Computed example of a mutant assay.
Amino acid sequence: MQQRSKSTSRGQWGLIGAAYAFLIIMMGTTLPTPLYPIYSEEFNLSPLVITIIYAVYAGGVIFGLLVFGQLSDRIGRRYVLLPGVILSIISALVFLFATNLTLLLIGRIISGLSAGLFTSTATATIVNLAPDDKKNQASTIASSVNMLGLGCGPLVCGILAEYLPYPTRLIFIVNIVTLVIAFIAIWLMPEPVKDRQSFRIQVQKLSVPAEMRSTFINAVIPVFVGFSMLGLMTAISPNFLGEILNMNNKAIVGVTVFLVFCASTVGQLLFKQKSDFHVLRLGSMTLIVGVALVAVSLILHSYILLLVGAMVSGLGQAFSFRAGLSTVNSAAPDDQRAEITSTFFTIAYVAISIPIVGIGLLELGLNVQWAGVVFSIIVVLLAVVSLLLLLRQGHQSTSE
């Protein structure tokens, strides 16, 4: 009995450690957001170059997911998470000493690789370490930690950069300290994968077991829409606030982006008694309203309306993300969970990068305001398509 109690306690602390490390890693990926106006001025970077910096990060994430996403199913979670923390520390060091565009690009690629290693593996780890009767709650914890970490990056960086000295240096020193603690937490975490196999790198195909393919598709489409919204808000917020509204306070930029992810985190705690299918529909409907408000705010130059639209959109993204991830995790076989969630997050990160790259290209002919309006309309249309597909699925289920 005492041995079982110690094992349970160690598992609980391992779960807390994995969640903390997940939060810190994701926080590190969005830390530079309020700093891009500074980098643009210091290194004379055009909007297109800033877009390339965003794009190489997304490429690093997708590469990490496809090449290493299934590896933790074979060799164990810890041995993928630890390199993920090390890569994040290296990325922070590169940014700490960055003096040119090349180092910014290298830092973002490494940061993307870190997120690629961590995203699906940490999610699977949290689910593995949770008690059997808490697996659905574990999915919610994982997705909430993911979103909260992404939101805390711009918030913490914006505040430190605006009110303390060394705006492009201090935040990365703080980040490195938190990452060292994350490394220790993962090192001490109990290893959930007991039946380990030999180390073998295998590029993952974007495929899902046939028996759950229909479930996966219906779950991932609303998630694609939700992450497209996150990419939209990340892309337009810094430049729209600075160029159109003349709001150059980096803390305000950080708070604005944080509120989107904060709403996403809070939204994942709502409607827990509803089925995943109903929450997915609610997510699509909420995204339609929220992103439409963002489009109107850009046209009217209204910061308040932008905030409202951002938070409503964040709620819609949360509903879609939580229900989609829960649906996929519930249906996935234990020995393929990391591989399947890698596919899930690959699609999500493709979605988050499309508006960032697209708006950067549109800014060559339009300003950030109208580039944002165009992509807001596209995201709204995608959300409408997602809702129609879910309604058709519900009608078919009722007919059967």
Rank of each mutant, 00 (worst) to 15 (best):
V80E: 02
G84M: 07
V85M: 03
L87H: 04
I89A: 06
I90R: 01
S91W: 01
L93R: 07
L93G: 10
V94E: 07
F95A: 03
F95N: 00
F95V: 09
F97R: 08
F97S: 14
A98F: 04
A98G: 11
T99N: 15
T102N: 11
T102H: 14
L103D: 05
L103E: 08
L103I: 15
L104P: 04
R108Q: 12
I109V: 15
I109G: 04
I109W: 01
I110M: 03
I110A: 04
I110S: 04
S111P: 03
G112L: 10
G112W: 13
G112C: 14
S114I: 04
A115C: 13
A115D: 05
G116E: 00
T119W: 09
S120H: 05
A122E: 05
A122T: 14
A122M: 09
T123I: 12
A124V: 14
T125C: 13
T125V: 08
I126A: 06
A130L: 02
P131M: 04
D132L: 07
D132W: 12
D133G: 11
D133Q: 10
K135Y: 11
K135E: 12
Q137I: 15
T140E: 15
T140P: 04
S143R: 02
V145H: 00
N146D: 11
M147Q: 11
G149D: 11
L150P: 00
L155N: 00
V156N: 00
G158L: 07
I159S: 04
L160R: 00
E162W: 12
Y163I: 13
Y163L: 06
P165N: 09
Y166W: 09
P167H: 10
P167F: 03
T168K: 06
R169A: 08
F172T: 01
F172L: 07
F172Q: 00
I173G: 02
I173H: 03
V174N: 07
N175A: 10
N175K: 06
I176L: 07
V177K: 05
V177M: 12
A182T: 15
